[in-house]
Design a protein around this nucleic acid. Structure first.
Lengths: 199, 199
DNA sequence: CCGTTTGCGGAACAGTTGTTATATATTAGC
DNA sequence: GCTAATATATAACAACTGTTCCGCAAACGG
């Protein structure tokens, strides 16, 4: 057997480079050569781990999703209300990580037009997020039509995110979090009276 | 003087072709040649009306915005509540026109990463929309913090739109409009008790 | 009816793209 | 240490990209 290398770890390094490039300079700047250079390798390594550019982009999107999901249980001490707040705050571009994820998502959406497989990936990502939020909600306020409530909360957060992405001056992190707090308060979730850590 | 031609009308035809192409096959399919072909001309005509591709894209986005704005006063009989509903419904991808506008917007956003001028255009478009909705709101329920309310309503609608774009099965037009109706109802706008034409 | 200006088709260009092929280095098992 | 399999650099390729340029057609002003 030859040189041993964790293939999955390599892929992460490459998709990470792609995500960085996309967030910094847009999808147009994410050429094979430039992604490889950003990762400190050449196209030979890239093509070794991804069949083509389309797969690289798909994996980059999925890796970005995984990265977000990985941060979920960071502070998930069976406090569903806090978990709910964190889950929704995860969709707000309030730091570099989350902003990068949004840029990757937008780039991916732009590419998903006319590509049904990519479109399905984006759709499924949303459905998974909806299911996650719905599950949290039914733990907090069961019987309150959690599905529709989840949709509304997610819509609220995503709408703020879309505005904040290209107008960060109008939307500092505090304002985005305030919008989230307001949405949670008016969501007639009497179970969570006040979410700490908001100021 | 030579052959007389309405230059602005020509530009509309070209940006329209670009928008159609972007909505159908994504930003990647919007090459100079293909846009020209879609409009039934050649690159010679395209370069005659746009300095470069970047300007074509910018103008395509602005033309798409203008197209949306043009539909505003269609039924604006001094009924601010109805105008508000229509303005917000204009941001929902519930027909081919509005869906196309959203696809153009997403493509434009993807290109606006790392291009501050395009980013500013996107930001200003949002600000203008916010101002429009705010003005309508202050006509309906003055003194109710119309700015923040407008932001929330727009966020709600845009969030639904983002989900609906790639999951039309989960979001038929009726469901999107129902979400809008719910948002309007719970916006403690006691002035507009019921918006007709929703079913 | 003619000169001049514009509209636009079409070809050519240089650079870049994704992709493929080749060569070299690296390392695990025997 | 030899072999074989993998990892990756490098180079080559053909297709395509945005852009430039040339030439002809059209039509207004005189």
């Amino acid at each position: 057997m030859p040189k041993v290398v964790d293939a999955e770890e390599r892929r992460v390094g490459l998709t990470d480079a792609a995500a960085r490039l996309i967030a910094r300079a847009g999808i147009g700047a994410a050429t094979m050569r430039d992604v490889a250079a950003e990762a400190g390798v050449t196209t030979g390594a890239l093509t070794h781990y991804f069949a083509d550019k389309r797969e690289l982009l798909l994996r980059t999107f999925e890796a970005s999703l995984d990265g977000r999901r990985a941060k979920r249980p960071e502070r998930d001490p069976a406090d569903a209300a806090l978990s709910l707040h964190d889950a929704l705050a995860g969709a707000l571009p309030i730091d570099d990580d989350r902003r990068r994820h949004w840029m990757v998502t937008v780039a991916f959406c732009a590419q998903a037009a006319g590509d049904s497989e990519l479109a399905a990936a984006q759709r499924d990502a949303y459905r998974e997020f909806r299911a996650h939020v719905t599950a949290l909600l039914s733990r907090i306020a069961p019987g309150d039509a959690p599905q529709e409530l989840a949709e509304r909360l997610i819509a609220q957060v995503d709408g703020v995110a879309m505005q904040a992405l290209f107008d960060p001056e109008s939307w500092p992190a505090a304002r985005q979090l305030a919008a989230l707090a307001h949405a949670l308060e008016t969501a007639n979730l009497h179970a969570l009276s006040a979410v700490p850590g908001l100021d």
